[in-house]
């Protein structure tokens, strides 16, 4: 009898363990609220879009003092060149893979000359860049990733509502273009 109960418990716990692992691993691919997935589905390619204007994108617990803008990219044909102006207030940028993991992040102080200048390339394009040594290498932050696609998210701090316009102008002036240098 005791052996039977032990056997029963062992089976139950083993199955519980398997189900636990399966649920944890499946949540990122099945979750409906996944913000990265919404961005990958709703945004056009190679264009910065103000996230508050897009239907179907809802980033939970977003910071109300920040304006967000994102650009979706693919690296199969060419690298991506991100460029933009300056903003006196704090801003930051993060490159995510399509699953929402951060590949690279920076803020205005870690940017070269406080300006948004970034090249996102895959390893093959990186090798080509090293051979050509274009001048962008000196003025841009080069992000090498093996992720085939993803998005870059710009966050601009809005200190007072009166400064929202300035932050929005900074975001809408940012460019996200295929890199033609290689």
């Amino acid at each position: 009898m005791i052996r039977r109960i032990l056997y029963f418990c062992l089976c139950g716990i083993t199955l519980a363990g398997i189900i636990h692992i399966v649920i944890i691993l499946l949540i990122p691919s099945l979750g409906k609220r996944d913000a990265a997935k919404q961005i990958m589905e709703a945004l056009p390619e190679l264009q910065f879009v103000d996230l508050s204007t897009v239907d179907g994108i809802e980033i939970a617990a977003a910071d109300p003092f920040f304006e967000l803008s994102a650009c979706r990219f693919k690296l199969d044909e060419a690298g991506v060149q991100i460029s933009g102006g300056k903003l006196p207030a704090f801003w930051s940028a993060a490159v995510y893979d399509k699953g929402g993991k951060v590949i690279y992040s920076m803020n205005d102080r870690t940017a070269i000359g406080n300006e948004l200048q970034m090249l996102i390339v895959n390893p093959v394009q990186m090798a080509a860049l090293r051979q050509i040594q274009p001048e962008e290498l000196e003025t841009s932050i080069v992000v090498e990733t093996s992720a085939p696609e993803g998005f870059i998210l710009l966050r601009a701090f809005v200190r007072e509502t009166t400064q929202a316009e300035e932050s929005r102008a900074f975001l809408s002036a940012a460019n996200c273009l295929p890199y033609s240098g290689i």
């Binding site: 609220r33 913000a35 980033i59 939970a60 993060a94 929402g100 951060v102 992040s105 920076m106 870690t110």
Partner: peptide, 8 residues
């Protein structure tokens, strides 16, 4: 449904 902040 959140997007994590990068370390920088």
């Amino acid at each position: 449904g959140t997007l994590p902040l990068g370390a920088a």
